[in-house]
Every structure is written in structure tokens, then in C-alpha cells.
Design a protein around this nucleic acid. Structure first.
Length: 439
RNA sequence: CGGGGCGUAGCACAGCCUGGUAGUGCGCUCGCUUUGGGAGCGAGAGGUCGCAAGUUCGAAUCUUGCCGCCCCGACCA
């Protein structure tokens, strides 16, 4: 992509409403545009990153055996009356009346909707286990949206819902998602920590939040320092026992958010206990028959009797992750994208656009990178060097390749690693090889 | 929802107290000079001063009402 043909409205100065790094940087890097409080348009580069995150989430859900569907954003109130949540939910739920005076709502979540789909199509235990997920926009009318995309009112979420015959099955479904989450966050370049979460009135121990570490995190977390040294599982088809083993291992280390942390009850020595701030990016939850019972989601069991299915739900905040990743990975100059979600792999800087030799060298290099399926943002504009460098640092592409009059003469390109700041002058072929190897 | 603050050009702001033809910096357009970390000079474009009513000869400025946005707290992916 040539920058001269792209839409990347970057800002030199900080918009005053942006208080935290991700919000500030997303606005400055031209990723989003606020429409109203907590509601944003996604501009090309922001959208591209979000789509990459979404795709990684999707691939790991698919690998885990979940099936993608798409449920609507607008839901009928009647479904929510069945579960009793229409009255319970409060003002966070955006209620809308259609032209026929029917009560509708913009979905803040989809348990009712998916349970309705399940009960009307699944009759036998033989069709279980089943896990349906979708990646869809949700709306929660937060009293006070803030932090840009991190806590907006409209947000993109992946929600998976599992259906099993009994608790044992549901537990395996839960463990399966637990492991899928470890893989997902690892691929996103994040250190995610599973925290035991409040299970509310349902009880049990099957609820975990996944948080990523960032200084601006919303809550304080405490965890055993060895937790971050655990290896992320990589295989695809684990047995129920293997899944349980992985989950047991990951949950054997102490990890708690401030609301669950009790110093008196924490057996980790002070030297091993780490305290940092975290951002919640995922939540998995077993809720048993809460919705299936209220809404009559049953299947015929092996003995021919109807059984109320056991359910769980598993969310990942896809749009929130865009901000979350920036919170976890930036410096004073701008964003530092992990390679897996970077909008482009390489930023190619032409230091003297209009200079025949420079243009030719850049065009050649650009073509070669593109032919290797490397996504390149080629700054072919007539801007000044400093401006181009600063802009490239701001948008945070993992690699920068700079070609200027000086380098053209000696046939070299300067390659800079955005994360480490390390620069090296390489011949064109060596530079290609380096960048291709990283792709 | 309690408390506080702010709405003036794409962005950041001054002007308001003490009413009198709407400004500065950055960005944008054109020209010349520059050119390896956010250049210089010159010439331009761009604003219903959030909206409405009121006071006044005259309102960005004073009064009232409304709307929007931000921050702290409580609450949440």
C-alpha cells in the first residue's frame, strides 16, 4: 500500500480527551474516529488490526471445535422475558420499540438468543457436545464510557456458548475453551493470566478472567512469578484428561485480582508474589442450567428421558484487544505492534521522493517485498525525513526499511526493528531476506 | 447516578472578567529555498464562536434554558 493512496489521518498533537496511552495513540495514529460517547468508527488501519485480531480468535475457536454462527444485534424482548433478564438488566440494556410497538433491544449479550436456537433444533444427547460462537457487535449503555475503545458502549466480542449433557461434559468444554484462550492470547503476542473470578450466586470454581498486564490496567492483580514462565499449549486435539491437566497446571499458581486477593490467605512468599495492573480481555464461565432450565433447552438423554443441558459462555473482547495490545506494547514514540496483528509488516520510507534513483530503488524494493507476500506500507509522500520517521514510529509497524540518496549510492537499505530500536544497514538482498524471514 | 470541568478553524488553545468588524501555533493549499529524526520565507483557504431564547444600538463576551463531550467516584468485556 502506498501511503499517498492510503487514508491515514495521523495527528501530531494529542487530542485532549484522550487520557490513556491506547486512546491517545489510536486517535493520533488515525485508527478510529469518535462518533459519540463510547461509539467509534474504525478507519482503515484500525479496522485492519481489529480484523487480524478477529481472525486469530476465529481460527483458535475453530481449532477448538467451536462452530461459527452469527446472531443478530437486535433481539426481541420476549426472549429476555423468558429468562427473567429483561427486568433484571437495568439501564445498561438499550431498549428500542419498533414501528409496531414491539419491544426490542440491542443485544448486550446472547445467552437467550443462542439457547433459543439450541432448543428449537437440538433434540438428542447424540448431538452433544456442541459449542456455537459468534463474533458480533454488542451494545451496553454504560453510564460513563471511557478510555476510548477500551470501554466503549458499542464493542465487538467473540462469544462462544457450550452445550453438554452433564457437568462433566460441561467441564471439559470449559477446559477446552480455557486452553484455546491460552493459545489465542499467545498468538496475539500477549502474556495473559487466568484469574479465578467471582462466580456469583451459581457458585463453583468454573469462572476465569483472562487479563493482560499493562501499567494502565483497570485493576490490580497478584500472581506467582512463575506463572509467566509456563509454556503455552500448542497441540490441537487434547483429550479431556490432557485438557484438565493443562488447566490444573495453569491454575495451580496463585493469581487473583484485588477484589479476590486476600493477603492473609495467600500462601505465596513475598519474593515470589508479583503485583501489577491488568486489563480483562476474556472471561469464561460455566453457568449450568440457568438459561436452559428457564427456557426449556432439553435433549433426550441415553435413557430416553429429557435432560436439561449444561451450558457455559466464553467471551473475548475483540475491539477491546486492539486497545489492550497497545496498552501492553507502546513507548513514548508510539505503538509497537506484535507481528501477528500489525496492520503492515514493513514500513518502507522513501527519504527523497521525487529523486529518480531513490524512487527507482524504493519501487524495486516495494515490488520485491510485495511479491513475497509481505504487507508493506510504502511512504512515497514528499514529506521530510523527520516527519516520516516520527510517523512510522507512531503507527508502530514492526519493521522500517529506509531508502535515501545516501544508501542508494552504496546499495544499502537501513532496516530498523521498531520494538528494539536496533538499526542495521544491509544490502537490498540481505534486507529482503531478513524481512521475509520475519514474515 | 453523585461530584467537577469544558464546548471558539482538522488539532491544541487565546480572546470572555471590563460587550464594539474573530485571533495564535500546528496541520492544509500554492510558490521559492531547504532536505537522514516533526524546516525557513512569502501568499492563501478554512469558523452559524455547541444550540435556542433573552438583555442591549451592538453579544464569542452578560442572563436563562437545552444539547454535547471530558475527568473523579460507584459499575462493567
Amino acid at each position: 500500500m502506498r501511503l499517498s493512496r492510503y487514508f491515514l489521518p495521523t495527528l501530531k498533537e494529542d487530542p485532549k480527551e484522550a487520557q490513556i496511552a491506547s486512546h491517545r495513540l489510536m486517535l493520533r495514529a488515525g485508527m478510529i474516529r469518535q462518533s459519540s460517547a463510547g461509539i467509534y468508527s474504525w478507519l482503515p488501519m484500525g479496522f485492519k488490526v481489529m480484523k487480524k485480531i478477529e481472525q486469530i480468535v476465529r481460527e483458535e475457536q475453530n481449532r477448538a471445535g467451536a462452530l461459527e454462527i452469527l446472531m443478530p444485534t437486535m433481539q426481541p424482548a420476549d426472549l429476555w422475558r423468558e429468562s427473567g433478564r429483561y427486568d433484571d438488566y437495568g439501564k445498561e440494556m438499550l431498549r428500542i420499540t419498533d414501528r409496531h410497538e414491539r419491544d426490542m433491544l440491542y443485544g448486550p449479550t446472547n445467552e437467550e438468543q443462542v439457547t433459543d436456537i439450541f432448543r428449537s433444533h437440538v433434540r438428542s444427547y447424540k448431538n452433544l457436545p456442541l459449542n456455537l460462537y459468534h463474533i458480533q457487535w454488542k451494545f451496553r449503555d454504560e453510564v460513563r464510557p471511557r478510555f476510548g475503545i477500551m470501554r466503549g458502549r458499542e464493542f465487538l466480542m467473540k462469544d462462544a456458548y457450550s452445550f453438554d449433557l452433564d457437568y462433566e461434559g460441561a467441564k471439559t468444554a470449559y477446559n477446552n475453551m480455557f486452553v484455546a484462550y491460552l493459545k489465542t492470547f499467545s498468538r496475539l503476542g500477549l502474556n495473559a493470566i487466568p484469574l479465578r473470578a467471582e462466580t456469583g450466586p451459581i457458585g463453583g470454581d468454573l469462572s476465569h478472567e483472562f487479563i493482560i498486564l499493562a501499567d494502565t490496567g483497570e485493576s490490580e492483580v497478584f500472581y506467582h512469578k512463575d506463572l509467566l514462565t509456563l509454556e503455552t499449549p500448542t497441540e490441537t486435539n487434547y483429550t479431556a484428561e490432557e485438557l484438565q491437566g493443562i488447566v490444573d497446571k495453569w491454575t495451580s499458581y496463585y493469581a487473583a485480582a484485588d477484589d479476590m486477593h486476600d493477603p492473609a490467605n495467600c500462601d505465596v512468599s513475598e519474593a515470589d508474589l508479583v503485583s501489577r495492573r491488568g486489563i480483562e480481555v476474556g472471561h469464561i464461565f460455566h453457568f449450568g442450567d440457568k438459561y436452559s432450565k428457564a427456557m426449556g433447552a432439553t435433549v433426550a438423554g441415553p435413557e430416553g428421558k429429557d435432560v436439561v443441558v449444561s451450558m457455559g459462555s466464553y467471551g473475548i473482547g475483540v475491539s477491546r484487544l486492539v486497545g489492550g495490545i497497545i496498552e501492553a506494547s507502546h513507548d513514548d514514540d508510539g505503538i509497537i505492534w506484535p507481528e501477528s496483528v500489525a496492520p503492515f509488516n514493513v514500513g518502507l520510507i522513501n527519504l527523497k521522493s521525487g529523486d529518480e534513483a531513490c524512487d527507482a530503488a524504493c519501487e524495486d524494493f516495494y515490488g520485491k517485498l510485495t511479491n513475497l507476500d509481505i504487507e508493506v506500507l510504502y511512504d512515497d509522500t514528499s514529506g521530510r525525513a523527520g516527519e516520516k520517521f516520527a510517523n512510522m514510529d507512531l503507527i508502530g509497524l514492526p519493521w522500517q526499511a529506509t531508502i535515501g540518496p545516501r544508501g542508494v549510492k552504496s546499495g544499502v537499505v537501513e532496516v530498523k526493528n521498531r520494538a528494539t530500536g536496533e538499526k542495521q544497514e544491509l544490502g537490498l538482498d540481505d534486507a529482503l531476506q531478513l524481512l521475509a524471514g520475519r514474515n
